[in-house]
Amino acid sequence: MGRRSDGRDLTKEWQEKFDRAAYVTSADELNALDLSKVDHLLGLFEPSHMKFESDRQKDEAGEPSLAEMTSTAIDILSRDEDGFFLMVEGGRIDHAHHDGNAKRALKDGQAFAQAVQMALSKVDLDNTLILVTADHSHVFTIAGYPTRGNPILGLSVPPAKDGSPGTEPALAEDGKPYTTLGYWTGPGAVTGERPLVTSEEAQDLDYHQQAAIPTEWENHGGEDVALFAAGPWSHLVGGVIEQNVIYHIMDYAMGLSEDQSSD
């Protein structure tokens, strides 16, 4: 019943509203479902946000991965002869960036990529349009000309003068090394003298990447973000477009507008 004060159990009401409905709260329950008997599925795995992917993997009992949820959704929705619309969001990428925590952000980015790959493996691109994009960027940077093979989360180690892989980190004007990844704003900034950070410390899961301006939370960026597409009408994606054009691409591909020609 959560925090409701009226005693209503909305999940129970939802289940009673539909035939062949299922409600799950864990990965084990989701994996145990016989999807041939389910037309409506509700999964609520946390009282608030779901876990970051790095933390989810430590929890053997609990949440399904984004790819697993994507797979289940497509299995159910694809039975509709009229087709379907599905939106999948790797929402915690944003949260990790706001916390200045690059390791969790990148790990959740990988989980999102796996969900995209899962979708590609389960649909027919002759009749299914897939769009992949972001709603904004972050003030997230890469710096220091790191040598090939240098840990992306570690200190910035440039190549040696002869071009061979380097071994010593680059030093800033204060004589201290700096991380390859950083933020313009965020909780990783300090006032006064910078602490000396080792590569091992910088690669810790809970490390807040160095930032230039101390703020409680890191901020969104303002540059363009990429839009990738595959499937019918994906050729309409190209160049620089306004964000509202994405709606019109989906509208055209699905033939929703009444004044749209049948072709």
Rank of each mutant, 00 (worst) to 15 (best):
D124I: 10
G192F: 05
A143L: 03
V245L: 13
T180D: 03
N244V: 11
L120H: 13
L120C: 13
L125F: 10
A202T: 05
D55G: 00
M254C: 13
F112L: 15
Q110T: 12
N31D: 14
S26I: 07
D28C: 02
A32G: 11
Q243K: 11
D39A: 08
K37E: 13
G90E: 11
R92E: 10
V237T: 07
Q57Y: 00
K107P: 00
A22R: 13
H49L: 12
S48D: 14
L66Q: 06
S234Y: 02
G188L: 05
Q117C: 06
H248V: 08
D99N: 15
E201R: 09
G221M: 08
E193P: 02
I74D: 04
H40W: 10
A172Y: 09
A102E: 13
S36A: 11
V237N: 04
E258Y: 08
P159F: 04
T128G: 11
F84I: 14
M254T: 15
R4A: 08
N127W: 02
L86S: 09
S5K: 08
I130S: 04
P232A: 10
F18D: 02
L42S: 02
S54H: 06
L10A: 02
G186H: 01
Y247L: 15
K37Y: 00
R4E: 05
E258I: 13
T191G: 12
E13C: 00
A113W: 02
A113R: 11
N244W: 09
E216Y: 03
S257D: 14
N219R: 14
S234E: 09
V157M: 05
S137H: 05
K107C: 04
Q203L: 02
G231Y: 03
S65E: 12
E63M: 12
E218Q: 13
A160P: 00
H98Q: 15
D206E: 13
L196I: 06
P214N: 05
H248K: 15
V139F: 03
L196W: 04
D206R: 06
E63Y: 01
P214D: 02
E16T: 01
D124H: 08
Q210P: 05
I74N: 01
T198G: 07
I152G: 03
S65P: 05
R4I: 01
V139G: 12
